[in-house]
């Protein structure tokens, strides 16, 4: 893997998302934000609903962003972005990418209705979900993106999450939008390529970016990239794209590592029995096989 694209912009003074933000050490959100904004060459408006991102950028009167940022209530990332899009286009701006930038709570849960409606109308915008698999900004509560048997403060020991993670790419591609994709911060070239593809595709685009959260995952901040790489290598989080809701392109993973290798680095999975890890493995294997069967192209 090359990372030239991702780090193309070495001048911190012209980075779209500057340094000095308020993220926790090892936060996947900021890595994702930097990659996305660089992929868009800084020509973006970012609409941020309630999420870690609404803190990370800075408290008034400070902001790390060098692109317009519009903070908006929790459920409204997509619908506010649609308004910005129409407004910009009416004012003659035909080039700026309007980006809704939401966490998994604002995407999989409270913002899903507005997101569904906005992509059903095929509004020409890019929705990014930086997915840290729980409500991290409020202190680690389960969302419908939280994986099976993960600990959170609302799925405590003895009552770990019983439902598997919701498949948001399936939901988005069921809307037959032009482009939806799964990416993660461990594969920056892949991430940048997907965002560039999204930018050049008219209509609604959705990219889910797995963004590790050391605070909520109970993992070492220095391991965020490694953990997200293991998510892909264990098939917990396959990298794929769906075009027009039909053509599925899957990045192959010929030599997968056991899910235990991914889970053992995260305190949220500590204390699981062998049988429970085996249960997760079966879920992951099944989902991977289904995905391979559905894939039109495996790269």
């Amino acid at each position: 893997m090359q990372t030239t694209d991702y780090t193309k912009n070495k001048d911190l003074k012209t980075e779209s998302f500057g340094c000095g933000n308020l993220a926790c050490p090892g936060c996947g959100e900021t890595i994702a934000m930097r990659g996305v904004l660089n992929a868009l060459d800084g020509d973006a408006v970012i609409v941020i609903p309630a999420c870690c991102g609404s803190i990370i950028d800075g408290l008034f009167p400070f902001s790390k962003a060098r692109v317009p940022v519009l903070h908006t209530p929790f459920a409204t990332a997509a619908s506010t972005a649609a308004g910005v899009l129409h407004g910009l286009r009416r004012r003659g701006n035909k080039h700026t990418t309007v980006v809704a930038w939401a966490g998994d709570g604002g995407t999989y849960d409270i913002g899903l209705q507005a997101l569904s409606s906005t992509v059903e109308r095929n509004e020409d915008f890019l929705y990014i979900c930086y997915d840290n698999e729980a409500y991290m900004n409020t202190g680690i509560q389960r969302s419908s993106s939280t994986p099976l048997l993960a600990w959170t403060t609302t799925t405590p020991e003895g009552d770990l999450k019983k439902a598997p993670k919701k498949n948001i790419i399936d939901i988005m591609s069921a809307h037959r939008i032009p482009y939806s994709a799964a990416a993660t911060v461990a594969y920056p070239d892949d991430l940048v390529a997907k965002v560039r593809r999204a930018k050049s595709t008219p209509g609604s685009k959705f990219v889910n970016i797995l963004a590790p959260c050391p605070t909520g995952w109970k993992s070492k901040p220095s391991l965020s990239v490694k953990i997200s790489r293991l998510a892909v290598r264990s098939n917990v989080y396959p990298l794929y794209e769906v075009f027009d809701g039909e053509r599925l392109v899957l990045r192959d993973n010929p030599d997968p590592v056991p899910v235990g290798k991914y889970m053992e680095l995260q305190g949220r999975f500590h204390g699981l029995s062998e049988q429970e890890v085996e249960l997760v493995q079966r879920h992951v294997d099944h989902a991977w096989e289904q995905l391979r069967k559905r894939a039109d192209e495996i790269i």
Binding site: L70, A75, T80, A82, G83, V84, L85, G87, R90
Partner: peptide
């Protein structure tokens, strides 16, 4: 809810 969110987004651009 989305109606108001959408006009908020648009009004923020000056239309």
């Amino acid at each position: 809810h989305s109606a108001m969110a959408t006009v908020i987004g648009a009004a923020s651009t000056g239309v």
